[in-house]
Every structure is written in C-alpha cells, then in structure tokens.
Amino acid sequence: MSVTILKDKCRGCRLCLKACPFDAIKMEDGKAVINYDKCTNCGACEASCRFESILVEREEKKTGIDLSAYKGVWVFAEQRLGKLMFTSLELLGEGRKLADKLGVELSAVLLGYEVDGICEELIHFGADRVIYANHRLLQNYTTDGYTKVIADLINEKRPEAMIVGATNIGRDLAPRIAARLNTGLTADCTKLDIDEEQRILLQTRPAFGGNIMATIVTPKHRPQMATVRPGVMKKLEMDKSRKGIVESVKVKLNEDDIRVNVEEVVKSAKQIVNLIEAQYIVSGGRGLGNPEGFKLIKELADALGGVVGSSRAAVDAGWISHDHQVGQTGKTVRPKVYIACGISGAIQHLAGMQSSDCIIAINKNPDAPIFSVADYGIVGDLYKVVPMLIEEVKKLKEQN
C-alpha cells in the first residue's frame, strides 16, 4: 500500500497535516508532501482531503483459501456427563434452516467418552450426520483437548460454517478454535441467516448496549463461526423416524496435548434456576420495592409450575442472585408465558424476553416501555394484582 499526493489537485489547505497522526506530511512550495519514513499508510490523510488530491493504493490481502472447497454446516453438540445440553437442540433447529438454505448437509460434532446414546438423539432433532469423537481424554471438557480435536476435524473435512452455544464451555472453546484456524468469530449472536447469492453467513448481535443490531460477515475466511445465546433459537420437534449417519472418527490425542488435568467434577450444592427450558417465568424488577417482594413472585411462579426471573436492577440491588437475571447481560428466554412484575422494560431486558409466546406486564406506570411488547398489560399495583392471579390459577387447577 502506498500514498500519493496529486500536486495538480492539492490546494495547500493543510487539512491532511492536521489529520496525520504520525506527523508524516509537510508543506513544500504550498503543496503537501509525504515523508515516507514516517508514513504508516493509515489512510487518515485521504479521508481528510476535500479535493481528492490524495490516493491510497491498497493491496488486497490474499488469504490463499479456496472458499469453494468448504461445504456443510456444523453444530457443536455440547454434552456434560453424558447428557446433551438443551442449547445444542436449539442450535440444531437453527442449523437445519441454514443448511437447507445452502443446500448442504447438517452435521453435529459430538466429543466425549462412551456417549453413543446421544448420537441417535442428535439425528432425531435434525442432524444429517453425527461426527463422533470417542476418547477417554474427552470424557471431561478441557480447552486444549476439545480445541485440538475440533480444529483437526475442521482442517480435514472443511465445513463452511460452525455454530456453538454461548454457554460457559462454548465461550471458552469457540475463540480458541477460531484463533487456531485464523478465522473470524461473532460472539453472542441473536439471529443467523444466509446470503444465498454469496453463500455468506449473516451473523447478527446486539451492539452499543443493545441500542442497535449489527450484522457481521466473514467473507474471506472459513469456517464462518458464531456463538449463539441460549434460549434465542427454537428447537425442532423430535422426529424418531429421521435417519442419519453416525461417523466415528479416529482421535489423535494424548496426555501431552492437554495442559490441565481434571481431577474431579463437583456439582454445585446450590440449585441453579433453569430459565432456558422453563415454560412459565414470573419476573420481578425494581418496582417490587424490596427483596421481600420476590416471595410473592415465587408464589405465583410455583402456582404456574414455573420459575422466578428478574431484571438486572433487582440483581444489582442484591435482592436476588444473578442466575435469575433475564436480559442482555443475563439469560435469553422464550417461555410460553412471561409475566413481568414491576419491570419498566429497558431495552436490555426486552432483548432477553421479547420472543416469549405470551407476555403479561404488570406496572403502575401506563407509559412503561414493557407495555410495547406485552400481549396483555395490567396497569396497577402488583401487590394487589399478583395475589388475584395466584388465587385464579389455584382455582383453575382445582377445577382440572
């Protein structure tokens, strides 16, 4: 890349001198001159010139990648202790749509040790092929082990896209794979689509605190990689009649490849609320006024057979733990019914629950933003409304 000043167009306005961050431009005989010893070819001068007298010639960086050699969509099938994570089923549903648009095969990549039973489950939920890496060193998740195996598989089989759940494991694993393969990664996506003409994965995620949605592409590298927030995508219904291929692959992995040994897996003694799979969620916000208000919220959630959620404001106030938080910095959920009690409806909270099938909002303020996404809005004191809802739910249960 080089910078050239067209002397016949230069007016000597000195705007480029002010714009250059490296003091690489000086004036000679009323014209701008480049000091190539200082110039870094950043292009700031070109952008500042009003008279099109500066040209920056850019050489297109060649990746040396034959994009046409990459085919297929992969989904990382996350399992823990032999149980397939719900997020993986959501990704299969989305991966099925992407693969169908591209006209390619959908593969689930399963790593573990003697978890053969999961393979059929993955096929029943949408996978055409299960790439199964079975090895004793893959029994427990390790960053080194999983990264090496998946990166080796990608180099061998060359998928054009791979999606990973934005779980604790996925957020650790995906960037390591992307870095090893020298490809791009878009984190925490809330929407995926395909530009069918260019065969490019359109990866959409919130930006600037959720105020805009940015669509990001990886046009020159493969595979195109994205992590997807749990609870955002919709899983397909199980189809036990679906047939697929289970491909057991040879794993080249030894203990020297793994720098951290897992000595023991200890489950948390504290029960973590499962917001992602809940069908009924009752959430409380700042409008509760105090932490005692969550007792009423829990009573309604229990009556519905659901779980308790929360806005960030209530979590920040110390009224409830973070594992209950719904929103951009919490969980993304899509239950059958979401009841928001005393939640104003900041855009960050709406981003985490607006895909719910039915939203019921209870708030004193008739102008609260939460009502803009609510299917049913109740303007009133939640401490009067919620007990009435609890009573009605209990009556309906008794009748049935």
Rank of each mutant, 00 (worst) to 15 (best):
L92G: 07
N211I: 06
G126N: 01
V386R: 07
A32K: 06
A77K: 01
V249S: 04
S88V: 05
D256V: 11
N363S: 14
D302S: 11
M213P: 03
T147E: 03
E46S: 14
L253N: 05
Y132R: 01
V260K: 09
P335L: 09
G231L: 05
C119A: 10
E264T: 10
I65C: 07
L382Q: 08
K252N: 13
G306M: 08
D29A: 14
D316A: 12
V3T: 11
C42Y: 11
I212D: 06
V164K: 04
P175R: 11
L202V: 06
P175S: 13
Q79C: 02
I150C: 07
T332H: 13
G380R: 07
D357A: 15
K235A: 08
E392G: 01
K71H: 05
N155Y: 02
D188V: 04
T190A: 09
I245S: 08
V273D: 07
Q198A: 11
I123H: 00
L137W: 02
I272C: 09
A161M: 15
E263M: 10
A269L: 09
S68N: 14
Y280I: 06
E398R: 07
T332N: 13
E264K: 12
D239W: 04
K220T: 04
M233C: 13
I216M: 02
T183V: 06
V379E: 14
P291I: 00
Q79S: 09
L253E: 01
E28P: 01
G345D: 13
D29C: 06
A178Q: 03
F76C: 00
M1F: 02
V249M: 06
A24C: 14
V393E: 02
L300R: 12
V109H: 00
A351I: 15
D357L: 14
T167Y: 08
M353I: 13
R334I: 09
L91H: 06
R199S: 03
E255S: 12
S344A: 15
A313E: 13
G306I: 04
K7E: 11
T186P: 07
V385I: 15
G327Y: 12
P387S: 11
V251K: 02
A32P: 12
F208S: 11
N35T: 08
V149G: 04
P21Q: 08
Q271W: 03
A47S: 15
A99C: 10
V130T: 00
E121N: 00
C189F: 05
L382G: 05
I297N: 01
K31Q: 09
A133I: 00
D172A: 10
S53G: 15
G95M: 05
S48T: 14
L92T: 04
T183C: 13
I54D: 03
V379D: 12
E247Q: 12
N134G: 01
W74F: 06
W74P: 00
H124S: 03
C358T: 14
I272K: 15
D188T: 07
R14H: 12
I359V: 14
E90Q: 10
N290C: 03
K364D: 15
T204N: 06
D316S: 07
C358P: 07
G145P: 04
W319G: 09
T227W: 00
S283V: 08
L382A: 10
M238E: 15
G126M: 00
S48Y: 09
Q348H: 14
P159I: 01
C341E: 02
L153K: 09
A44R: 11
A346C: 12
W319V: 10
L173K: 13
Y146N: 02
K295A: 14
T332G: 09
I212P: 02
G112Q: 01
D172E: 15
I5H: 03
R242S: 04
